[in-house]
Amino acid sequence: MSETKKKILVVDDDTDDLKMLSMILEPEGYDVVTAENGVEALEQVESEDPDLILLDVMMPELDGFAACDKLKSSPASQGIPVVLLTGVAKQITKTRYPIDGVLRAQAEEYLEKPVEPEELLRVVASFFK
């Protein structure tokens, strides 16, 4: 069973949110690793090789957009699906979003805050069918 456990990297600067997302995902059989900012997330991708990344948009230092841009431009990580969590869904089309007015790298999915846990689990599961 442990071999088939999918690993999810959750990236959020709010420690409560990190804990909460882990507590939602872990009992459903996912392995969760966390990062508190975009820079840490890039390091975790290298060392943990996750199957999916949940990325909060609003973060200090490297924000979710920029982190996603970096992930999608690196051959090592561009295959990992990214789900953006955001309070500003208006700025985002389904898989593309603007950085400095330019549509940049793609995220596979986005969820608008407040995120319904059932919806989150459904979206996460859809990547592992």
């Binding site: 709010d14 409560d16 949110d17 909460m20 997302l21 507590m23 939602i24 009992p27 309070g87 500003v88 805050k113 407040p114 995120v115 319904e116 846990p117 059932e118």
Partner: peptide
């Protein structure tokens, strides 16, 4: 609105966790 979304996000998430944890 951003502040309230953050709070709502946490309330919705934790109440889900609590309901499920009680069940289990």
């Amino acid at each position: 609105s951003h502040f309230l979304k953050d709070v709502a996000h946490a309330l919705v998430g934790t109440s889900f966790i609590i309901r499920r944890a009680i069940r289990q």
